[in-house]
Design a binder for these strands. Sequence first.
DNA 1: TTGTCGGCCGATCGCCGACAA
DNA 2: TTGTCGGCGATCGGCCGACAA
Lengths: 221, 221
Amino acid sequence: MDTKQSLEELMPPTQMVRKGKWGKEDLNSELWHACAGPLVSLPQVAGLVYYFPQGHSEQVAVSTKRTGTSYIPSYPNLPSQIMCWVHNVKLHTDKETDEIYAQITLQPVNTEKDVFPTPGFGPKPSKHPSEFFCKTLTASDTSTHGGFSVPRRAAEKLFPRLDYTMQPPSQELVVRDLHDNTWTFRHIYRGQPKRHLLTTGWSLFVGAKRLRAGDFVLFIR
Amino acid sequence: MDTKQSLEELMPPTQMVRKGKWGKEDLNSELWHACAGPLVSLPQVAGLVYYFPQGHSEQVAVSTKRTGTSYIPSYPNLPSQIMCWVHNVKLHTDKETDEIYAQITLQPVNTEKDVFPTPGFGPKPSKHPSEFFCKTLTASDTSTHGGFSVPRRAAEKLFPRLDYTMQPPSQELVVRDLHDNTWTFRHIYRGQPKRHLLTTGWSLFVGAKRLRAGDFVLFIR
DNA sequence: TTGTCGGCCGATCGCCGACAA
DNA sequence: TTGTCGGCGATCGGCCGACAA
């Protein structure tokens, strides 16, 4: 199972956000979109969209692996697309896997005229964070043998600047995940050649999130 | 959370049964009743029972801790007791906590005459195992520091007899839980004064079942 | 009779730079 | 630049009898 881990830096100390409950809407919305990627944009509440029943049905058939007697009903007389009014859009994250998804409540309408027109319609682009970094975890990253190797650019762009007069330079990174849980990592710059590492605290995170090589983490500022 | 752990000895090697799926009905039924205790007896399928809606509603209200907007509906015109025909009785165990419960399917009837009479009605006592032992776990039992201290009477009555010519006397105990999972424990008789202990394998069981001091285990033969 | 503890030893964790891809 | 490894010290797991409740 691939698990996307998102990390958000709001301000020093660094914060990491993981999929979860939405306490601060702005914060988590940005994180959610960071995980979803730039190609995903959600419809606006009170906007008009087309709902494609067959496409949805096929998605459900693939994503739910039912066994035995259950089956997917088909509705031959259903139109291929249904104009709908967007009642509500709610961002979610799976509490176990941190996988993100959105819950969109739709109400069918016959024509556009059935809906009270609202100025400013149309696909408004969602806010995607400009400062982010995503890394696929290596075997060394998830092993109990050591910590997390931070790509240089990620550390320099997103993490609070280290005091390089220290020997070795290091700091405590306090980070929040999407569930509003906080995690503390030791960020150190050491080794020959020099590299950024997350050491103390990282293994707790790997264990709690059950991360495996191939999963990925996402940092945002 | 208190978790009841039941252990069943069928024949040497010793077996332990924990709440779970019902492969062998006889085996698990006996275990289920061992966990439920002697005061619990279930109605027979095709028998007649009285259903008390208010009592059931109060039970549900207590056991489900709903927060916020949900509420328990009340039906003022419902009779206090409803005569029912027992369609089905199914034994269950929670896969996470091993807590036992029964699912009883009822159908309301107006009078006894609506039901085709069957000879041999009445509360037939459920089979309760005669040879069993139950122990509340101590801090030492669940600690990572050591194993499980077996009460002398339990070991002598339920476990296969040790070969006391060995130094120290010990054997491998293979045990099955209610989910039909098997567990292997080293059973040894040692120490000064001598006592029965479960050592190797016990900590795996404690970890997998997330047992805490205060939970209890139940052995049956 | 049995719950808790100190002692002890081996396994694992986790921090380090070496080295190479 | 960064993934993997050997080295190593610290911690933890888990088996033992001592001791006392």
